[in-house]
Write a protein that binds this DNA or RNA. Structure first.
Length: 835
DNA sequence: ATAGGGTTAG
């Protein structure tokens, strides 16, 4: 039987004994005191002006320079340098090379260059030190220029290390054109058979995202070793070509190459993504790892932990974490990231695990990195642990990580969802390198907090900053337009999407349907839906809900049937649309049937919103007792939303007795919700009973419950105009009121009777929606429909008035309230007065 | 000397 060869001991020793090597048995440690003495000696010799330094042994100089590199101490290096000059013993080439190398490794490239320039005959080692020195500092252009200089120096011949440094620059910058030229130079130099350079070429092409070229190098190489295989595997894994990663891995195994931690690290990454057999393959790899004895290797085990956490096998991930005796920061980060992924999925019982782990890693003396903070911030935001999040912010500053854009986004979220939008915005502006994702996060935060105008402003600002909005930016901005019912702005953004090619994305299409529907233009919404090439469940659901909101129950239901015919399985959101359609359309029997069907046919568990639809459905139809029984048996009898739906029904049917009883219950459940008081007030007021109505107002005042002020708004060209009741602030107020009086006069002639009670309270006639419609009449072209949005439900008088106006003025009026749309045409409303 | 693990945002 074939058995895998035992692993190289080197890996094992390194993992577990690393610590001891470094601190106890290292020869460097033993000679530390010697170095210290020598340093002191040097210092006194140089600082004392009258003291003539004594020449040291050249081996001592070399060792001192090596020591200053290891302890990252350029001051010591400089001291040695001065000493060498004072004693005139710096002529040997190898000492000068050591000096160049020391300055490079300590990041003092200017000094390195000065020493180099004074060298009479630099050799290839001198050149190589300089090239790799610039490259390691990230000064790639300088590095490659020095490489070119070295080529022109006829005294030296470039070696494999020169080409290695040049290839490294290509890998880091992703400059494949440069890489190809260096490749050419390698071939010309005759070094291309060296497996060392083959491996670097494979790596270079992979890192430049040209894995196919890497493959060509691999297949045509003179010789390959395990590093070649591992580099190719890593290339495929980094490109996300997971199946090919596994293919190459299997081939490597068959060719008899030793599987080590490098190959396993890449190939485990490939198993994180779900495709046929990936989970099984991952588990096989786990077995393989144990057999090879690599289950003590922290790199391999971190990759394995990450894989289990990503495929949802969280218990195994935790088990691996606990089993490892030496955990480093990366392993902690992987575990914390795993928890933060879980928490965003809403597993609340695990909410504090990330924080416990964070405390644990600090206790072990590990230094958190930017990955740690961005993951843990994400977890904080998911479970709304704001105080903890703020403490993290302080820590982030302590570790000087505040300029990272991922952390920046996390902080923006933290402050914004905890209600401190200003601080969120400050974090946003404090992030030095804002990318399109940062901007999109900020826009999304505004949308979530209901600051839709601010969201649109930010979108424009992002464009001004030369950002290129992607499909997510466009989608979220369209939803800001939808909430503002700003169809004009929405169309402009859609135009931008079409121009930039992002209009093809499903999430853009879905947002666009929603934007048109919420702006009152159901026809444009439907056109978008029909034009979409591959609509998904979200598209269907949005379209169904849109029909429902517009009161087109039959359209909603027939669309739902078509959807099921296309083998698309409905979800909770789809059913919410269906039930809303039934309740707005007064289809009681159908609504109850669908409610049963969602449970029995699709195994969906209705939530409070679905149940509130049923309450609404029964209540509107006048079956108040049935509605109340339904609440009691729904499992949501402490949810105020359900009771308020019933209270609304009491108002529609003028049932004062039930209304009072229900109102008392819902006010007890939620004493600060103004809507419940207002509904009861209206029940009394509709019935003409003034005293209890006044009492309710007083009660609200006593309890400090504030009614949301009614607000209506309309978009005319690119600006949104909003109105409150009796608003006098608009610049065109005179024309608005004149038009309103004129319309009232006109419709009274065709039968409208104002609900205005007395001349001294001119309130009802100047409700905000009337003002907005009047403004629309004078500002929009005659053929355009008037689309007005309101934050509260329309009052019956306004509803009646709109019907008359639509006839008298031959205009289509679309009025959106928080529940639904009313489309007034030729004297009647699309809701057929059932609302 | 060259290859490997954590990528987190909407």
């Amino acid at each position: 039987m074939l058995r895998p060869k035992p692993p190289k001991c080197k890996t094992l020793a390194f993992t577990s004994l690393n610590h001891f090597h470094k601190t106890l048995i290292s020869p460097k440690f033993l000679s530390l005191t010697t170095f210290h003495d020598q340093t002191q000696q040097l210092q006194t010799q140089i600082l004392e002006p009258n003291f003539t330094p004594t020449i040291l042994d050249s081996n001592t100089y070399t060792n001192l320079l090596k020591f200053s590199i290891e302890s990252k101490n350029p001051i010591l290096g400089k001291l040695v340098h001065t000493h060498l000059i004072k004693t005139c013993s710096h002529q040997p080439l190898f000492l000068q090379n050591n000096l160049v190398n020391m300055y490079c490794k300590c990041g003092k490239l200017d000094n390195a260059r000065k020493v180099f320039d004074r060298m009479l005959e630099p050799d290839v080692i001198s050149w190589n030190s300089l090239v790799s020195g610039y490259s390691q500092l990230g000064l790639y252009e300088k590095s490659i220029n020095v490489f070119k200089e070295a080529r022109r120096d006829s005294r030296v011949e470039l070696d494999k290390f020169s080409y290695a440094s040049a290839l490294c620059v290509c890998s880091r910058t992703g400059d494949v054109e440069l890489g190809k030229m260096v490749h050419g130079l390698i071939v010309v130099s005759g070094l291309s058979r060296l497996v060392f350079l083959t491996n670097l070429l494979i790596d270079m092409y992979s890192k430049c995202s040209c894995v196919d070229d890497a493959r060509v190098v691999f297949e045509n190489s003179y010789e390959v070793d395990d590093v070649s295989w591992n580099s190719l595997i890593a290339g495929y894994a980094q490109m996300g070509l997971y199946k090919r990663t596994l293919d190459v891995f299997v081939r490597m195994h068959r060719d008899g190459f030793q599987l080590n931690s490098f190959a396993l690290g890449s190939v485990l990454k490939a198993c994180c993504s779900c495709f046929n057999g990936s989970i099984l393959f991952g588990k096989m790899l786990h077995g393989c790892i144990v057999k090879l004895g690599l289950d003590v290797d922290v790199v391999v085990m971190t990759a394995l932990l990450d894989m289990y956490s990503k495929i949802g096998d969280f218990c195994d991930a935790i088990r691996i974490f606990r089993l490892m005796s030496h955990r480093n920061v990366i392993m902690y980060n992987a575990m914390i990231a795993g928890f933060s992924r879980l928490e965003t999925d809403g597993s609340e019982e695990l909410s504090e695990e990330s924080m416990i782990l964070f405390a644990e890693m600090l206790k072990e003396g590990l230094k958190p990195t930017k990955f740690t903070f961005s993951s843990i911030l994400k977890a904080c935001n998911a479970v709304e642990a704001f105080e903890y999040g703020k403490q993290l912010h302080a820590q982030i500053h302590k570790y000087k990580l505040q300029s990272d854009e991922f952390i920046g986004s996390g902080l923006v979220e933290l402050y914004s969802i905890s209600g401190l939008s200003e601080d969120g915005l400050r974090c946003f502006h404090a992030t030095p390198r804002l990318d399109i994702v940062s901007w999109t996060s900020m826009i999304a935060v505004c949308v979530r907090n209901g600051q839709f105008e601010q969201a649109l402003r930010l979108f424009c600002e992002a464009l001004a900053f030369k950002m290129k909005p992607d499909e997510y930016t466009i989608s979220i901005t369209l939803s800001a337009c939808a909430n503002l019912a700003a169809e004009r702005s929405g169309e402009q953004i859609q135009g931008h999407a079409v121009k930039t090619g992002f209009g093809q994305f499903k999430i853009v299409g879905n947002s666009q349907i929603c934007m048109y529907a919420k702006s009152g233009d159901i026809d444009a919404a439907e056109l978008t839906f029909k034009e979409m090439e591959n609509c998904d469940l979200v598209s269907w659901s949005v379209m169904i809900s849109s029909h429902a909101q517009h009161g087109c129950a039959s359209d909603a239901l027939s669309l739902f049937e078509v959807m099921k015919g296309c083998d698309v399985a409905p979800n909770l959101v789809t059913y919410l649309g269906v039930l809303t359609a039934c309740s707005h359309g007064g289809l009681v029997a159908e609504g109850l049937w669908y409610f049963e069907s969602m449970k029995s046919d699709h195994g969906l568990k209705p939530n409070a919103k679905h149940c509130a639809c049923i309450v609404d459905l029964l209540g509107r139809a006048g079956r108040l007792a049935d509605a109340e029984n339904f609440i009691m048996s729904s499992g949501f009898k402490v949810d105020p939303v359900m009771w308020r739906a019933l209270l609304g029904a009491c108002r529609i049917h003028g049932d004062i007795v039930t209304g009072k009883r229900i109102a008392e219950r819902v006010i007890e459940l939620e004493p600060q919700a103004a809507a419940s008081y207002v509904l009861l007030y209206n029940i009394y007021s509709d019935a003409g009973i003034q005293l209890p109505a006044t009492n309710i107002r007083d009660l609200m005042k006593d309890r400090g419950v504030k009614k949301e002020p009614g607000l209506s708004w309309i978009q005319v060209s690119s600006s949104v105009h909003s109105f409150v009741v009796g608003d006098k602030s608009h610049l065109q107020r005179q024309s608005i009121y004149r038009k309103l009086e004129e319309m009232l006069e006109k419709i009274e002639k065709i039968g409208y009777v104002s609900q205005q009670e007395s001349k001294n309270s001119l309130v009802v006639n100047y409700h905000s929606e009337k003002l907005a419609v009047s403004f629309g009449m004078i500002s929009l072209p005659k053929s355009a429909p008037i689309r007005v949005m309101k934050n509260l439900r329309v009052c019956p008088d306004c509803h009646t008035m709109m019907k008359f106006v639509s006839k008298a003025e031959s205009r289509e009026i679309v009025l959106r309230d928080p529940i639904r749309f009313h489309r007034f045409r030729d004297g009647s409303c699309s809701c057929r007065d059932y609302w």
